[in-house]
Amino acid sequence: MEACATHGPSASAGGRVFRAALPPFEYLAATSVPEALRLLAKFRGRAVLLAGGTDVLVQMRTGKRVPEAVIDIKRVAALGGGVKVERGGRIAIGALTTLADIEHDAKLRRLVPLLPEAVATMASPQVRNRGTIGGNLCNAAPSADTAPPLLALDALVRLHTRKGVRTMPLAEFFTGPGRTALGTDAVLGAILVPKPPRGLRAAFRKHGVREAMECAVVSVAVAVAKERGTIRHARVVLGAVAPTPLRVPAAEALLVGHPGGPLDLLAAAGEAADAARPITDVRGSSDYRRDVVRTLVRRALEEVAG
């Protein structure tokens, strides 16, 4: 799973680090957002925030991350709160909400089933019990599985910085493999999912070497809304095939205004394959990944637009 963390080979030093103790660090438990921000500022990039720890502990174990301090944010109430439907239909998901809670949340399953369905394909039950949605986004692996569905749903993120609270589109949040707009001095508070357009149908597809426990070779989320037989709204998003999760506006443009017949879908899938900038690694060559993109996008679109 380590290799999922960045857009490149794992930095784990072969057998040498196996079973090494975690490197020493100072542990600090923040109880409020201002306290977490103050501690982040104090350590200036030498501290790491800890939510579920399912990425952080693995990174420390393999020597990829050697922080001086670990700032535990699990007890910061303002980052929790679970899943809430706001007036007007927007959904707010606290950054600390666990993947398991998202998978089983009745409101999400009814309003935006795409997200719980994608989350159910992630990791293992044990990891989902612990890992959080905020951690998945902030870790910013190109293959992060919550990103494509949230991008397909036009999600926003609420950030807490020293200057105050700021909301930005999730699409602007990812700046590179393992890098986000947070920098080293901000905290993700919540994910906001706008009320989906009427009649939205969405699908998630993931291709890995194994069915479970595997970071995606390619993942795809699509969302389509039709009005009287014509596509009025389309989203096509790819994971694991570029330095960040990737929306493909060119593919979306080929769908909007069209009925969504087989040729429309094929054209959009081709556009998505062209937009992908996959790497070659042990999980697959870049040509192979591009082929998989084409197939997965077509199949996902057939499910929602056919």
Binding site: T54, A100, N129, M213
Partner: peptide, 25 residues
């Protein structure tokens, strides 16, 4: 590293990988 499940325990009623939980936590 969370991959094998050999360290699975119940923590407050939910299964976790004990290798991915800080004892302090």
């Amino acid at each position: 590293q969370g991959e094998c499940g050999a360290c699975t325990v119940h923590l407050d009623g939910r299964t976790v990988n004990a290798c991915l939980v800080l004892a302090i936590d």
